[in-house]
């Protein structure tokens, strides 16, 4: 009896392994440009002696978020310059260090670690391999051979906060965060400041799900907010945020007027204009592309760069026009100018 039971269990385990593999969708090596609408890029061959690697965090390369953006940037670079690019996925935190080392020891010109979880691993690998070049997104690593990129998420979040403040009919606006970590706190602080700046009467409710990879929790958090009359929800929760979208899509079908503000990428491309009011774009792809390209062009610099509104590394996508009225966008541009000029200083925590 027990033997059969354990055999059954084993079967289920192995089948689920296989199925979970099938469940995740394709487009690994062809991510890159969306569809074939872009003109064919002709490589200038400048990067053919360069090999650039990138290690994802546990989200994997198809996370529809910054891992994917980063990989798309590298693929674009590869087309433009013929540089060789590769990625490795980390199944757990313990994988990050050997994955970085894998690239470094294979003599890669540059190795990216995508996400703040790489802080320790990048530092250790950088110190152990002073000749290697590494770069990291969303974290600050203090080593002479590391380029660190962070974003002024609070500035971009301020602008989508303005949109939400001006467009909410119930004057009740929700924020769904992933884990309560400094990066996400920046989103929250900027967003709340933006809402208040545009509409002092509006009310912002902040919810943290504690995870970046649990759409079901995002869905239930969104459901609670919408039920309580919050009509716009801004999520900064990675994969968990997909659940926020799904909830909104269902409600939209039933005729409710609800909106989601996406994060990191232009999420209207993925979840549709019907529910995506706008997105707080984070220029991960631009940053990865720029720093990698600098290396190829001989302009490599290590150290930390914070990219913000002035660099166009954060902000709203073009597609916002569809749902956000002209006058609101005008207001947004006014605030943007004020932030760049320093007239408004957006709080970062």
């Amino acid at each position: 009896m027990k033997k059969t039971a354990s055999l059954m269990l084993m079967l289920v385990l192995s089948i689920s392994l296989v199925l979970s593999a099938c469940g995740v969708d394709k487009k690994n090596n062809n991510g890159g440009s969306q569809g074939g609408s872009e003109p064919e890029v002709v490589s200038d061959e400048s990067g053919k002696d360069f090999k650039i690697g990138m290690v994802t965090d546990v989200g994997g390369v198809n996370d529809r978020s910054f891992n994917q953006s980063a990989w798309e940037a590298l693929q674009r670079l590869s087309k433009e310059t013929s540089a060789e690019t590769k990625f490795l996925e980390s199944k757990g935190e313990a994988d990050m260090e050997p994955n970085l080392n894998n690239f470094v020891r294979e003599g890669y010109s540059l190795t990216w670690g995508i996400g703040f979880l790489f802080t320790d691993a990048i530092l250790k690998v950088a110190n152990e391999n002073p000749d290697a070049k590494l770069a990291v997104i969303d974290a600050v690593v203090d080593a002479p051979n590391v380029a660190s990129v962070t974003f002024a998420e609070h500035e971009g979040s301020f602008l989508v906060g303005v949109v939400a403040g001006l467009m909410s009919e119930s004057k009740k606006i929700g924020f769904v965060g992933g884990m309560e970590i400094p990066v996400i706190k920046r989103f929250e602080a900027g967003f709340v400041a933006g809402v208040k700046a545009a509409n002092p009467d509006a009310n912002v409710k902040v919810v943290y799900t504690g995870t970046f990879d649990k759409p079901d929790q995002g869905k239930s958090a969104a459901a609670t907010l919408y039920n309580d009359g919050y009509d716009i929800v801004f999520h900064a929760a990675g994969g968990t945020g997909n659940g926020v979208f799904n909830e909104a899509i269902e409600r939209k079908k039933n005729g409710e007027k609800v909106w989601v503000i996406g994060v990191d990428k232009d999420q209207s491309l993925e979840f549709g204009d019907e529910v995506t009011l706008t997105s707080m774009m984070k220029g991960v792809d631009a940053a990865v592309h720029k720093i990698s390209k600098d290396l190829i062009d001989g302009n490599w610099t290590s150290g930390t760069q914070e990219l913000g509104l002035k660099d166009d590394a954060v902000g709203l996508p073009e597609t916002s026009k569809k749902n956000v009225p002209e006058d609101v966008l005008k207001k947004v541009d006014e605030f943007k100018a004020k932030i760049i000029s320093g007239e408004i200083v957006v709080p970062g925590e």
Binding site: M10, L11, L13, S14, I15, L17, V18, S20, A21, N28
Partner: peptide, 14 residues
């Protein structure tokens, strides 16, 4: 891709 890698691991374990 990691999806196919998982199929490989899954079939060995199976």
């Amino acid at each position: 891709p990691s999806e196919i890698v998982r199929i490989v691991i899954g079939s060995v374990i199976f």
